[in-house]
């Protein structure tokens, strides 16, 4: 079923500056699938999603990444986004003076233009904005604020998932979207992610803890340690890791 493959990573090595962080990653994601990547701090989880999104300081040294049949690493990051790749940031940056509405409008316009679609009218855009805001429990006052400016940790994460629903990409990369959330906030964020899921969508979810997987059930779980995927399995693997700790796997792999 190769036509269902949305992302194919082969032998990916990557780093920041002179430091090699990913030491050979192989991963295949098909449409409809949710993959969770778990690993201890510093294992390379964030590096993986940042390389895929095209963040400038993260460099791919070797290997191949194919996205929708194209060489992803050759695509500029804004084009990756317009082609349906979305990164929910672990630490969304503040943009003083940039209104949420104006930002989302620009993003949506440029994505639609890329796909040969007309820009939404102000009315259509407002309707879409209201609809998605409601789904994420976001009120009108919030939409008048500047992007991430003065947001609490929870608001930032909720805003990321709100964007996910509004921009409606194909492949979502979620970088520790669960970190720093209390249970209520986690539920809202998880609900948003589940709403996004579908047969024509795929998710790569990076997390340190198993907790979010209670709400967003993954199809596959991969354990990343020291830049390599050391184990892959179903949801039960996450529970096992939680019970035994990452040390257990490190020893199993016989590092």
């Amino acid at each position: 079923m190769t036509q269902d493959v949305i992302l194919e990573i082969r032998g990916l090595r990557a780093g920041v500056g002179d430091v090699e962080i990913l030491k050979g990653i192989d991963l295949t994601i098909r449409l409809g699938e949710t993959h969770a990547i778990m690993g201890p701090n510093g294992s390379g989880k964030s590096t993986l999603v940042n390389v895929l999104a095209g963040k400038p300081e993260y460099e791919a040294w070797a290997g191949q990444v194919t996205y929708k049949g194209r060489d992803l690493l050759q695509m500029p990051p804004d084009e990756r986004a317009r082609e349906g790749l979305f990164l929910a940031f672990q630490y969304p940056v503040e943009l003083p003076g940039v209104r949420i509405r104006e930002f989302l409008r620009a993003a949506l316009d440029s994505i639609r233009e890329h796909h040969g679609l007309d820009k939404l009218s102000v009315r259509e855009f407002n309707r879409l904005l209201q609809e998605k805001a409601k789904e994420m429990g976001i009120d009108q006052d919030f939409l008048r604020r500047n992007v991430n400016e003065g947001f609490s940790g929870g608001e930032k994460k909720r805003h990321e998932i709100f964007q996910l629903l509004l921009l409606d990409p194909t492949l979502a990369l979620l970088d520790e979207t669960d970190s720093g959330l209390d249970v209520d906030a986690l539920k809202i964020v998880a609900d948003g992610i589940n709403r996004f899921r579908g047969p024509q969508k795929a998710i790569l979810l990076v997390t340190h803890y198993q907790r979010i997987l209670n709400y967003v059930a993954p199809d596959y779980v991969h354990i990343l340690i020291d830049g390599r995927i050391v184990a892959s399995g179903g949801k039960e693997l996450a529970l096992e890791v939680e019970a035994k700790g990452y040390e257990w796997l490190r020893q199993t792999v016989g590092g």
């Binding site: 095209g54 963040k55 990051p77 804004d78 986004a81 317009r82 979305f86 940056v93 943009l95 440029s110």
Partner: peptide
């Protein structure tokens, strides 16, 4: 910052537009 630019670019916004939005935001007042 690169972080600010990348945030906008990662949403499909072209680099020039991203820079313009940040400058425009800076001037809002």
């Amino acid at each position: 910052s690169e972080e600010q630019l990348f945030y906008l670019i990662s949403r499909g916004i072209r680099e020039e537009d991203a820079q313009y939005m940040i400058v425009n935001g800076f001037c809002r007042g």
